[in-house]
Design a protein around this nucleic acid. Structure first.
Lengths: 145, 145
DNA sequence: CCTATAATTGAAAAAGATTTTCAGTTTCAT
DNA sequence: ATGAAACTGAAAATCTTTTTCAATTATAGG
């Protein structure tokens, strides 16, 4: 069976997973390779189909379990779209946020937003303690418009 | 069976639904009443349970169908949370955004954000046409902290 | 290099969530 | 009042996700 060399990013993910106490198996490697290098959001079944091209024995259950590990480790995040939240993506780092093409699922990460004033104001008015904020843009990518 | 007078908001929703060509039935009225006046996000089964207290014949299917209509009409929106996206809420109007308590699901709507500069910059850099933006805060409400 | 152990795997079954089908009922315009 | 079209609830069908379990595999330690 073919055995490509991992990209730098997927190698880094595998190192992180191993440091987290997980074992590095062939199906995990294949799934990591797929997700680390995808430019669009992928659902469990998409990943399953892609993984089986590389390692045909891969089971769908293993995809679900890999997604759990990757999400728990903070390498991957769920993508929320109007029609559901079943796709996954490389997690945004730091102050990155995501911009998604509503047609093809293409993703672009962008940095920069300073919401601290707004957050302070909303905390004051609501009595909440804000722990997390979530900013996401949707639109049409250059190819889809 | 009891028949409370509708609140102004739920009456407005019913009018909108009727204007949209939908028929106003008892289970729809009950479901609208529940959603229009809830201060927290509710999933289909939550709604089902609450609806049956008011109108015991209500079927879960009818809840799903009502949510479809309400979402299509823009009165209700799905709430996206870390663990899934199965709850619904009154839709945010205009420049309102939502702040959710991660423990109890309590929701607060807040207004105000000017992201036009950021949007313009990201459009320029990415080649996307941005159609929609999505801002959501998560935290602990006054009661839950 | 071998070994023991604990994690991981795939298949099948189970559980859950959502959708479809269908016959009977209800709304609402006429 | 009446009829057409929309809506309803129950059951069945479809998905999606999780659990169970025996077999396999990764990895630490000898």
């Amino acid at each position: 069976m073919s055995n490509h060399t991992p990209t730098p990013l997927s190698q880094a993910w595998l190192d992180t997973l191993q440091a987290g106490g997980y074992r590095i198996t062939r199906p995990l490697q294949v799934i990591v390779e797929i997700l680390a290098n995808s430019t669009r959001a992928l659902g469990p079944v998409n990943i399953y189909d892609l993984a089986r091209k590389e390692y045909p024995k891969t089971g769908l259950v293993t995809v679900y379990r890999a997604l759990e590990k990757l999400e728990a480790t903070g390498l991957v995040q769920r993508v929320h779209q109007a029609d559901g939240c079943h796709a996954y993506l490389r997690a945004a780092n730091g102050h990155e946020h995501i911009l998604l093409c509503s047609l093809c699922g293409q993703v672009v990460y962008f940095a920069g937003d300073d919401l601290s004033d707004l957050i302070a104001r909303v905390e004051g008015q609501s009595g909440f303690t804000i722990q997390e904020h979530w900013l996401q843009f949707h639109g049409l990518c250059a190819n889809c418009q």
